[in-house]
Amino acid sequence: MAALLEVENLSVRYGDLMALRSASLSVDEGEVVCIIGPNGAGKSTTLAAIAGGVRPVSGDIRLEGRSIVGRRPEHIARLRLSLVPEGRHIFGTLTVEENLQIGGYMLGDRAAARAGMERLLGHFPRLRERLRYPAARLSGGEQQMLAVARAVMTRPRLLLVDEPSLGLAPRIIDQIYEILLELRQREKLTLLINEQSSARILKFADRIYVLRGGAVQVEGRAADLRDGEAIHRAYFGFGTQDSAPAETAA
């Protein structure tokens, strides 16, 4: 059986800059896959390309075997491939409830959307308390939860989450990952997540891709990478046991 999502030799160029060089990855149904890497590694570009936000110069992206390259973002969202964009893109002056409704409209089934919202709010008690608040009044962590909840309202076959921890306190990040874990178990979500920090991810994910300089450096099962040596080497270009960095440039 083909993987749910297959990305093959994907390259993206911003002007002179090659943001992604022939990166390949795949996500199976029910899996949690994480892309980690330093700033500028091409993590967000990868997710943006999958979600239709940027057009790759070459390579293929297939959802259940069907190519989705070149489709517009709103079409891809309608294939129930949902992106939680980096930096909490929420609808600020609309209420929390309206934000969630917008996610649910895509289903085209009011009753299902309402039931979905009810079930979802069970995972987000904090959002339930603030249903009639304008979303911009929420704290940063709550806004991130809202962005995730809105994406889950579309009942995604694959949920893409771009740096959920960005700019949040460690305790809030833990809460967000707890919720993601819960959603994974209860809603049978398949997840592809970007992160900079690896420690938390190594416990959370099934498989890991380490991206640096726009190319996949290491991939493997999270369990096999837990000692950190391979990741460290991929991240910095040298390992923890090496005496000195011989060459740090990519």
Binding site: A51, G52, G53, P73, A77, S82, P85, G92, R150
Partner: peptide
Amino acid sequence: DGVAAKASG
């Protein structure tokens, strides 16, 4: 938010 609107289909 144009980005989020597109991401919501």
